[in-house]
């Protein structure tokens, strides 16, 4: 009987801990989807800026609008407290996100501003891409510098 209790207890503990690791699986997937969507569209703009792809105003504008679109997702939904890389596998989110929510939100809002500019200007000509990419890149870096665990 004692043995049985011990096994039940151990299973509960193990089950419990794996439940913690699984708890934020969807949030992690969702926010990484956001990042990949941004990255994919930056790829289009960047390839045109570097001259690896011919400039196409429609494609550039669509990429700018896509980035602007995902920049509007509600951040707190994607980064609930405890969903950082210290507690979960497969994420490099730092726990400073939760201790400094205001700073994190501010960085995301800065991306929003740069993305709005990208949506408005990326389709106006190839020469607009440099400043657009510079502004977006600055906001990516500023946030990753503080809130991402270095790989």
């Amino acid at each position: 009987m004692k043995k049985f209790v011990a096994i039940v207890a151990a299973t509960a503990i193990l089950g419990g801990s794996s439940a913690i690791a699984q708890e934020y699986k969807n949030q992690i997937k969702a926010r990484q989807g956001v990042m990949w969507t941004i990255s994919l569209n930056l790829g289009t703009l960047g390839a045109m800026a570097k001259g690896e792809m011919e400039y196409d105003a429609d494609k550039a504008a669509a990429a700018g609008r896509s980035i602007h679109g995902v920049s509007m997702v509600h951040l707190a939904t994607l980064f609930p407290e405890g969903s950082d890389g210290g507690m979960n596998d497969g994420t490099t989110a730092k726990d400073t996100i939760f201790s400094d929510r205001a700073g994190f939100d501010e960085k995301w809002a800065a991306l929003g501003t740069a993305a709005e500019k990208a949506a408005a200007e990326a389709g106006t000509g190839k020469e607009a891409l440099g400043p657009v990419m510079g502004a977006l890149g600055g906001t990516c870096k500023a946030c990753h510098e503080t809130y991402r665990i270095p790989q």
Binding site: S39, L40, G46, C140, K141, A142, H144, E145, P150, Q151
Partner: peptide
């Protein structure tokens, strides 16, 4: 891959 620099490299 259009990931961005982070940490001290930023």
């Amino acid at each position: 891959e259009f990931d961005s620099a982070g940490g001290h490299m930023a």
